[in-house]
Simulated scan of single mutants.
Amino acid sequence: MHARAIPCSGQPLPVIGLGTWRGFDVGGTPAELPQRGEVLAALLGSGGTVVDSSPMYGSAEQVVGELLERGGSRGRAFVATKVWTSGRQAGIEQMERSLRLLRTQHVDLLQVHNLVDWRTHLATLREWKAQGRISYIGVTHYTDDAHGALEEAMRAEPLDFVQFNYSVADRAAEQRLLPLAAERGVAVLVNLPFGGGKVLRGLRRQPLPAWAQEIGCASWNQLLLKFVLSQPAVTCVIPGTSSPGHMRDNAAAGTGELPPPAFWRARLAALGL
């Protein structure tokens, strides 16, 4: 799998990761755990490392922590989670709980989820980074109407990562966020790369275009993920899934040719996108 450097450190990060919203909120149904373990194994076996979670995602942190420990694969994963509350002390307590659920003393990336009280939490995150409890800090959101607030945070603070929505169906991030991330040397995680799924469901009703084979795409998932990766400012894409097969399919998008933005314009227009 291709990897792109985290700008602030130079550490290479594989370009396809895993989001755990909904799909990993299965802590109350133990029978579902083996399949989620297979998803993690498929990610790591394909060369991916990034696993993104949050306290907002129900039992996902607990499930990720248990499965990584059970599989002996914590050292191979780049674990990202978030703080999603208001107030300094509440944030500290929530982050301490996240580390316990993830069964680790160190998290690779801690992000302020949906910019909730971000100025307060970023101060704490800098302290934790200085203490070696986390390696990187960032902020996140998932809607276009929050892009202005994300831009404000990116200009106000030196961030390691920013996470936001970008897809063939929603290209607003091309206007300001992607150029700003490149300018300021901030790594980008992309969520909702299938546009929430609606576009993907529609595309699956039609055959892949012949030109998809030119860039090594065997599925619509791979085509849409390669589109996101056409932006050089994107460091890693984190589609969510609870299917090992889908995880392997998604991971394959991180291999082979990754055409630049100019490749896509006319081809996507011909598809009505």
Results as ranks from 00 to 15, higher is better:
H2R: 14
S9G: 11
Q11G: 00
Q11A: 14
L13M: 15
P14C: 04
G19E: 09
G19Q: 04
G23K: 00
T29D: 13
A31T: 12
V39W: 08
V39S: 02
G47A: 08
G48C: 01
T49W: 06
V50P: 01
V51A: 02
A60Q: 04
Q62P: 00
V64W: 02
G65F: 13
E69W: 05
R74Q: 13
G75F: 09
K82T: 12
G87T: 05
G87M: 03
A90E: 15
G91M: 10
I92N: 04
I92G: 03
E96A: 14
D108A: 09
L110A: 14
T120I: 08
R133D: 00
R133V: 04
I134E: 01
I134A: 06
G138Q: 05
T143E: 10
A146V: 03
L150W: 08
E151C: 01
R155Q: 13
L159R: 01
F161R: 02
Q163P: 01
Y166M: 02
V168K: 00
R171F: 07
A172D: 12
A173E: 06
E174H: 02
Q175T: 14
P179D: 12
A181K: 10
A181F: 13
G185T: 10
G185Y: 08
V186Y: 07
G196Y: 06
G196T: 08
R204Q: 15
P207F: 06
L208I: 09
G216K: 00
C217E: 10
A218P: 01
W220G: 05
W220M: 01
Q222T: 00
T241P: 02
G254T: 10
P260T: 04
A262M: 06
A262I: 09
L268N: 10
A270C: 13
A270E: 10
